[in-house]
Nucleic acid binder design. Sequence first.
RNA 1: AGGCACGUACGUCAAUGGUAGACGGCUUCCCUUACAAGGAAGAGGUUGGGGGUUCGAGUCCCUCCGUGCCUACCA
Length: 890
Amino acid sequence: MDIPKQYDPKEAEQHHYERWERSGFFAPEINKDPAAEVFSIVIPPPNVTGSLHMGHALQHTLMDVMTRHKRMCGYRTLWLPGMDHAGISTQLMVSRALKEEGKSRHDLGREKFVERVWQWKAESGGQITVQMRREGASVDWSREKFTMDEDLSRAVYEVFVRLYEEGMIYRGNRIVNWCPHDQTVLSDLEVEKLPQSGKLYYLQYPIKNSERHVTVATTRPETMLGDTAVAVSPTDDRYRDLVGETVLLPLTNREIPIIADEYVDPEFGTGAVKVTPAHDPNDYEMGLRHSLPEVVVIDLYAKMTADAGADFAGLDRYKAREKVVADFESLGLLEKVVDYEFSISKCERCKTVIEPLISLQWFMKMDQVRDLALDLLAREHKPRFVPETYEKIYTNWLENLRDWTISRQLWWGHQIPAWYTPDGQVVVARSEEEAREKAGTSELTRDPDVLDTWFSSALWPFSTLGWPNETDDLKTFYPTSVLVTARDIIFLWVSRMVMSGMKFMGKEPFADVYVTGTVLDSQGQRMSKTKRNGIDPLEVFDKYGVDATRLTLAQIGSTDTRWNEKQVESYRNFANKIWNAARFCLLNSDGAEVKPETLDNASALQDRWIVSRLNKTARDLNAAINAYEFHQAVQLLYHFFWDDFCDWYIELSKSDVTAEQESAARTEARTRLLTVLEQALRLLHPFMPYITEELWQRLPGEKHLHSAYAGAEPTVMLTAFPAGNANLIDEAAESEMQAIIELISRVRNIRSEMNIKPSERIPVIVAASDENLRRVFSSAREQISRLVRASEISVNGQVEAPRASARAVLTGGAEVAIPLEGLIDFEQERRRLQREQEKLQAEAKKLEAQLENPNFVSRAPAERVNEVRARIAEIAQQSAQLQQTVENLQ
RNA sequence: AGGCACGUACGUCAAUGGUAGACGGCUUCCCUUACAAGGAAGAGGUUGGGGGUUCGAGUCCCUCCGUGCCUACCA
């Protein structure tokens, strides 16, 4: 058999995925057990324009670990993939391409443009689905969905119509966030606030029939052209007499009132605020309270309107600002200008400064669905957030929820199913046909707007399963088991899925929400396209392999972590270790094959021990994965495989396994080794799908699949995940092995400290007063001898060693001595033993102090107190032995 | 401005209130026939500072310092 010394991940990553997918292993139908429990996850649909980044890789790894684990446990599993049409980004991307041809979307017209977007999607959309295959994601591609698919669109319209009929969706004029670049309205969540250093301008407004003036402060002087009032605090004595007076608004011929409103903070600025209802959300609210007129002075393109006055009409908002300031200065009404830090709202996508504008839009009332979500949490504590701290954030946001602006002035997306009759009547329907019927006329104009992308994603957990039809999938897989996502879309997406799930399914969309951490760059900065500090997962895959990258990501779990390539490298080394361990097993496998039953009746200590370790690891691993403790899971696997299996089990079995002479004992040892390896590969599989499949395929023997997958093609991904059989956990074997490991370690320690060359063989004298311990050491004599490179080993009741020996005291009253005639430096040996003595005494001192505290003895659990007592006794005994040893040196 | 996290070895991170660990790095030795991407043995910590609760605190409470993130209408 020809197996290279180094593991080549690319080789293994090449063929397995294609076979897994082709053989239908990812689809729930592979499970033939009608009574199987169900496990389902819907993927957070990546943007159709997107490509894989570290955040995806992290989420996908965790989802895949859970899915593969549950599948191997016999669950009917579905991990449903899909993509989001991503309204604005996609439209922008295609518009940009058009621009290169010298065209705009308006040149094409709506219909042609949308066709063009579909064409783009067919040709170059969905890069990420190719990249997900590379990750090894075991999603069911046969159920892949896209938010603009016909069936998902049907769900969108159904929801819209139902909500409209219930009065939860309405159309109205309200102040909204407008992006002058993208020419669309944005929800509050699509706006980002950035700190900005700017200026605060103090403008003087003359008061009618008076010599006085009132000074207002503003960061946006150009909006003064649209002022319709000046507001002061009702509690502000400075302005009390001015309330009700009239201001002569400079640069315009308008007169506006001075009003009193609670909103005004007398402490800030001058205590007087200019009110521009058409261009500021707070002023808008104030305007409503005081029935102020709304004077629109800025248009959709952020240029001044005719109402701004002839001098300003057509000017860009920033030019207008300069001119207003200059005009005030020449009128002597500019009191002062000071530097000022404030935050500015920008479009999340194009970074253009948002213009708050009054505009006719569609909105969704959130009160009712918000209460459904809050009730679900209060009554059933669902969804359960992991880590649970996110529950507070989620609740807090829900409690402060406002109406959702759902219309967007785009062409790419679900066009709002509302039609207008010639006389301005609104008809909302599932289709144009239904609209005609309702309206009683065919002269209808459809609303040109589309819905916010998140409107369709909010339905994802049930729209993807066939809703509004009552499909089998919907019945089987809803509610889903867990949602895995990054924290930045808890509001945008998670909460909205809960609300719509409760509203339309009457059940929560998922039981748990697992919020992943953020992968930061080495400086602790968030990775972002604009900063260009992102690490491309595909490059990491190429360099270290997918499996090593997955282990790194899995252990990150929900912690924010700085990206550390060294960690990946160490897991690459781990993969290589697995490879070479398997290589050893296979190179010594003649005449043997995997036989699971050989693990149930092991008799030799090392066999009982590894079986015990295997089952304990499996037990703990299952618990860790089920509790979303991925870091713990990775640690368990790493140490079981490397420490227990490679460092000890292989080494202890080596002489049996590599015996030149064929024998029943050799075959048996080889069989056990292969069988333990096969079990270990199963444990590793959810985390490292490629290397485990590659090696598993090479193992000889008839390897059984989980009974739910009987008849399927052989693959490690459909074997039974080891459950961790309590009957095979053997504490006696573990503690006996521990004694052997301790003995070997102490001898090696002596060798190292005494600078004994590795090639030099030394006699080893072991003594134990305990008969069982003597038996344990004796029967492992050959293995111990090999691992410490001993020339001879004796095991007795008492130490009978020459004075010139290095010694160590072991647990359980055992001792080891190494005669070192001529090699030993007595002074050095005494110091070495003295150091050990000091360590023991320090520990004993601490423990004794505890016992001397009467409160500890009376209040701490008895079990704990006994542990301390036992440990003190153990130390006392070892210490006495050490003392004796030191004295013998004199 | 409020809210929420976080601060542990040189680095990245673990640790149901019960003797502070892992991996990498570092030091010494070894190409011992699975693996030098390896083996063996080590060094390295007043858990950001201070106070409190407790028999016992990295963990719970208060406070200060530092760092992130989220939310917010301060013109």
